[in-house]
């Protein structure tokens, strides 16, 4: 029967695709577990970790400062306009601080670092893979997960929270600039409402996320680098896939963390 002949290959193709996706999740998880376990084992590549901290932390600082500042500024512009309708412009500082610390600071910082560093990790490791440098490393007695993945994981997980703090502060400052120079708000009022609106659970929520996002950025970048196939074209593909996957995972995970933390902390 022609219909049956048509259906069977389609089903086989779907089954193969599903199998490959499940395998990818399994490999990603195992790589993550191995990289995490390596943190407590030897050898420790301290020099590599410090280099990655410099690349990820110091290297990302300019874009984090810029995006943080203008996010805070535009947030102040937009919210003051809305709050004006209700005669509550004085709450601008509160809205800017809460939005940035709880949500926008961690997410935008993670997205910026993903765009800059997950792609960098995927292309660097991918290039090493296609030029057989990873095989050479293994041949010379080095575990690539210890030498390449764990330093990037440690560096991203430790740098992202610091970058988020900077982004939050610069963002609130951006909001202040707009409030003071454009909306003509009293500076003391802005800073007082911004400061007083922040409670432990807001800061906790905003600071727990960068650790999880840092793990996602590093692991996705390294995973796509280590699974690169097909020469230089494959490196380009891995780089794009790493940025897309890391961004989607950050936004998806953010929803579930927020839901969980709201349920736990209120």
């Amino acid at each position: 029967m022609p219909r049956q002949r048509q259906t069977l290959p389609n089903f086989a193709a779907f089954f193969d695709l599903a199998k490959s996706k499940v395998l990818a999740v399994q490999e990603f998880t195992l790589l993550g577990l191995r990289a995490f376990r390596n943190v407590f084992g030897r050898p420790r590549y301290l020099a590599d970790t410090l280099i990655q901290m410099d690349v990820i932390g110091v290297g990302s600082l300019p874009i984090i400062v810029l995006t943080g500042f203008f996010t805070g500024a535009v947030l102040a512009l937009q919210t003051s306009k809305t709050l004006q309708t209700f005669g509550e412009v004085t709450l601008t500082g509160q809205v800017v601080a809460l939005s940035l610390v709880r949500e926008l600071g961690p997410v935008l910082t993670a997205l910026m670092v993903a765009g800059r560093n997950a792609s960098g990790m995927a292309s660097e490791i991918g290039s090493m893979l296609v030029s057989e440098q990873i095989d050479a490393m293994r041949a010379l007695g080095t575990d690539p997960s210890k030498k390449l993945v764990t330093p990037r994981l440690v560096a991203t997980v430790s740098m992202l929270p610091l970058l988020t703090i900077i982004s939050d502060f610069v963002g609130v400052t951006g909001g202040f600039m707009v409030s003071f120079f454009i909306i003509r708000m009293d500076p003391v009022q802005y800073w007082t409402t911004a400061y007083q609106s922040l409670h432990f659970e807001d800061v906790f929520q905003g600071m727990i996320k960068p650790f999880i996002f840092g793990y996602i950025v590093a692991m996705v970048g390294c995973y796509f680098g280590l699974t690169t196939r097909g020469g230089t074209q494959g490196v380009g593909r891995s780089t794009t896939q790493a940025v897309v996957a890391a961004s989607v995972l950050i936004l998806t995970t953010d929803f579930f963390i927020t839901k969980l933390l709201l349920a736990l902390l209120g």
Binding site: S131, E132, Q133, D135, A136, M137, A139
Partner: peptide, 10 residues
């Protein structure tokens, strides 16, 4: 091991 193209760490 000597790899094809050398595989030196660039």
């Amino acid at each position: 091991m000597v790899f094809q193209e050398g595989a030196l760490f660039d």
